[in-house]
């Protein structure tokens, strides 16, 4: 049976923890709103670039040798998994669920006899993957110290990916991130970035107006594809940022509620202990008085 003082200390400690989790929840909520705004603001560019790419790709003759970024290297041997996670923990299962999905993919690819390489973005993912697959990690992109996701970062990552691709370091690149569905649900998602998969044009879409191209189709495609890769990375990073805050918000909400319940139980225990003490003292006094 803990003493009265112990109980009191525990209550104070839990109460201050609750204050911290509550504050973290509110900060996450504010950041989540900003992250969601950023994700919405980035949507028009992504949509336009998709339409343009779709139009251009539709104009290519199938089977003809196109840019390597679009058609692939013709092999499917080396897979690069880009695992994007957060730099910080305390956000529920957010980081581990992305890592778990990546790990399942690694196991299944290795089972098929493929070579797997890793490119990690964010500290937590690297820390978790280092233990088992440290020798597979090819590169790491540090996002620490940056508060908001900017296109510059996405471009840096995309440039590194493209350079690696040019060197022939991998054949297929897939990015793993948490897709933001709602504050409670973030879905770990894998999407292929290289070779680029332009969105299929709907069958009933109006035929593309005969465009005039300056300088020419090929030159446009070669400048457009790297941008498309960057846009996809950017989108993944933005979704990830929103998901992280969402996950942290609900995790901290749970923690706050848990702390509340704990305080209630501890208070009950404390009161019981206090009453028991008073009763014992009274019994002692009465017993003492009677014996006189």
């Amino acid at each position: 049976m803990p003493s009265l003082k112990d109980l009191k200390d525990r209550i104070t400690s839990v109460r201050s923890t609750q204050k911290i989790t509550k504050a973290m929840q509110m900060v996450a909520a504010a950041k989540l709103r900003r992250a969601e705004e950023a994700a919405t603001a980035a949507r028009p560019y992504a949509q336009r670039i998709e339409t343009v790419l779709g139009n251009l790709a539709a104009g290519l003759t199938p089977g003809a040798p196109g840019p390597k970024l679009l058609t692939g290297t013709g092999k499917d041997q080396v897979h690069l998994l880009v695992v994007a996670t957060a730099d910080r923990g305390l956000c529920g299962g957010f980081n581990s669920s992305i890592v778990r999905l990546a790990r399942e993919r690694i196991v299944s690819l290795q089972g098929q006899g493929k070579t797997v390489r890793l490119f990690t973005i964010g500290k937590k993912g690297r820390d978790q993957l280092k233990r088992l697959y440290g020798d597979l990690i090819l590169e790491h992109y540090d996002t620490e110290g940056t508060k908001t996701v900017g296109f510059e970062q996405a471009k840096d990552v995309a440039d590194r990916l493209l350079a690696l691709y040019e060197e022939g370091a991998f054949d297929v690149a897939t990015i793993f991130y948490g897709r933001f569905q709602s504050v409670i649900a973030q879905v770990p998602t894998a999407s292929q970035v290289i070779p680029a998969k332009p969105p299929a044009r709907p069958q009933d879409a109006a035929p593309v107006a005969p465009y005039e191209y300056e300088p020419d189709e090929e030159a446009i495609l070669t400048t457009l594809l790297p941008r498309y890769v960057a846009v996809q990375v950017f989108r993944a990073l933005l979704e990830n940022a929103a998901s992280e805050q969402g996950a942290r918000m609900s995790a901290m909400d749970n923690a706050t509620r848990n702390a509340g319940e704990m305080i209630d139980t501890l208070n009950l225990q404390y009161n019981r202990a206090r009453q028991a003490q008073i009763t014992t003292e009274l019994v002692e006094i009465i017993a003492g008085a009677e014996s006189v």
């Binding site: 950023a38 603001a41 980035a42 028009p44 560019y45 992504a46 336009r48 900017g150 296109f151 996405a154 960057a230 846009v231 950017f234």
Partner: peptide, 9 residues
């Protein structure tokens, strides 16, 4: 007419 950058319209 519209001018869009990756970060916003």
């Amino acid at each position: 007419f519209s001018l869009v950058t990756p970060e916003r319209e």
